[in-house]
């Protein structure tokens, strides 16, 4: 295996370490704690009062729109990072290109702003 892939193998190993640590802690606690479930205990806690209706209620659509906005800007970030590392080589050309790119995205944000998406009414 190449040195490069070997380094990225650590990502997998650290992931396994995290799962091992969490599993180990929960397993350790399982040996110490009592386990006597009753129907009342297994009821949802919510605010301490018996819950009314189901837990999966409908929610504001606003969160979905924010998620869409986020995708737009996150994709932008993906493009900005490689550009940022090579700016010295690109010089003025790269700078103008990126200013145009950022301007178009800022325009998108301005549009969303103008449309009142960012308002929390």
């Amino acid at each position: 295996m190449s040195e490069f892939l070997r380094e990225y193998l650590l990502v997998l190993l650290f992931g396994l370490l995290a799962i091992g640590v969490v599993g180990g802690f929960i397993g350790l606690a399982a040996a110490l704690r009592p386990d006597r479930p009753t129907a009342g205990k297994l009821e949802n806690y919510e605010s301490g009062v018996d819950p009314v209706g189901g837990g999966w209620s409908q929610s504001q659509i606003r969160y979905y729109i924010f998620a869409l906005l986020f995708v737009m800007f996150d994709v932008e970030a993906v493009f900005i990072f490689p550009w940022a590392t090579r700016l010295e080589a690109y010089g003025m050309f790269g700078l103008v290109e990126m200013v145009i790119f950022i301007f178009i995205l800022a325009l998108g944000l301005a549009y969303a702003w103008r449309k009142g998406v960012l308002r929390w009414a």
Partner: peptide, 24 residues
């Protein structure tokens, strides 16, 4: 460590138990 581990009866048990793993 000595607290009882409660999974609410109505909860989605697998997802409920998996979420601390994802956070860590």
């Amino acid at each position: 460590a000595q607290k009882e581990d409660i999974v609410p009866a109505r909860a989605d048990e697998f997802v409920y138990k998996a979420s601390p793993y994802v956070v860590l």
